[in-house]
Simulated assay, not measured.
Amino acid sequence: MRAPLATLVAILALTLSGCGIGLGTAGGYTASGTLAGPVAGVKRLDGASIAVGSKNFTEQVLLGKMTVILLKSAGADVKDLTNIPGSAAARQAQLVGQVQMMWEYTGTAWLTYLNHDKPIANSHKQYVAVRDEDLAENDLVWLPPTPMNDTYTMAINQATAKKYGITKLSQMSKVPAADRTFCVESEFTDRPDGLKGMLQTYGLPLGESGGIPRSNLLTLQTGAIYDATAKGQCTFGEVFTTDGRINALHLTALQDDKSFFPKYNGSLVIRKDLLTEYPQLTDLFAPVSKRLTNKVIAQLNAEVDVDGREPGDVAYDWLVSEGLIAG
């Protein structure tokens, strides 16, 4: 989900199309096992050579490592290009064929890569629209999406939740005007699917009478927002719904009860030529997608961001625990 502006994609496309791109990844060693359970009977990928990419934040690296491990366990020769710096570079790498498989988010593709102005509120319709357009325009196949939706919302700490009984964004107005303070990223303040639009939707327009003065905004880096919100430096903190730090810091993620934020369901995206040659990839990854709920991925994210474990180890252990591979 964490995507730069669409213009950055265009700039990188021009820059990278004329030369080989150094992705600057940090793949490292990744273990493998033996296919088991629901994927035990999937046709092996012996002889296949597949490059797997990911963006450079925890959830993406975890998903990329799961993909690398499962492919290796099926016999494929895998080039690990996980941890590519930036969404635009990762997308361009797949468009030009340096990366053949990568997890993406429906909202990111629709708004940033395919340049649409407004999201589609229904998550299934959003997926179908992205799936069909990206296949037609770019020969990229979107496998069925995960239940997880890595979108934005606001979070509050335990003291705020107890004091005001807030569980939904529509209840932000219960907080006295002077205490309606927000910890946000700089990009979130200005992007169309960010703070300004959210506040307008929920009747607290930014910078207007009765709304939220800009002096109530504290701009921080992503990781610092969680800690600042937990410590009460602001009442509301911008968070991602699948981030493991929400539970670890005992924050409450508020329900987007007016469905303002776009749907960012994860989906494994595969270049059409690769899937045509190895159609069994669909069956190999179907059980993974079905199991990736918000709760599951948040726990896995926390094992990395809170417990300090390596993403490859977390991904391997989860695949074993789910009976998809045997160690």
Rank of each mutant, 00 (worst) to 15 (best):
T276W: 03
I156V: 15
A315K: 05
P213Y: 05
Q94I: 03
C19K: 12
F236N: 02
P176M: 01
Q299R: 15
R291Q: 09
N56V: 03
N83A: 14
M1S: 04
R91V: 15
Q255H: 13
L135H: 01
D179F: 09
V288L: 14
R271A: 04
G64S: 15
A136F: 09
L81K: 14
I11R: 14
L135G: 01
L81Y: 13
L95G: 00
Q299S: 11
G308I: 06
S54T: 12
L5A: 13
A13T: 09
W318G: 01
S321K: 14
A224M: 08
K72N: 11
A3W: 12
D77C: 09
T146D: 13
V269S: 09
E303Q: 14
A93M: 08
K55E: 15
F182Y: 08
Y226C: 14
A93K: 09
S123T: 07
T241F: 14
Q255Y: 12
L300R: 05
A178E: 08
L275A: 07
A76N: 12
A161N: 06
T67H: 04
V99N: 09
Y264K: 09
V320C: 01
M148N: 15
D132Y: 01
V99W: 07
A121E: 00
V175H: 04
P38H: 05
Q255A: 14
A88H: 11
R91M: 14
M172V: 00
A13C: 06
D80N: 15
S289Y: 04
V9C: 07
T242W: 07
G244D: 03
L324K: 02
N247W: 12
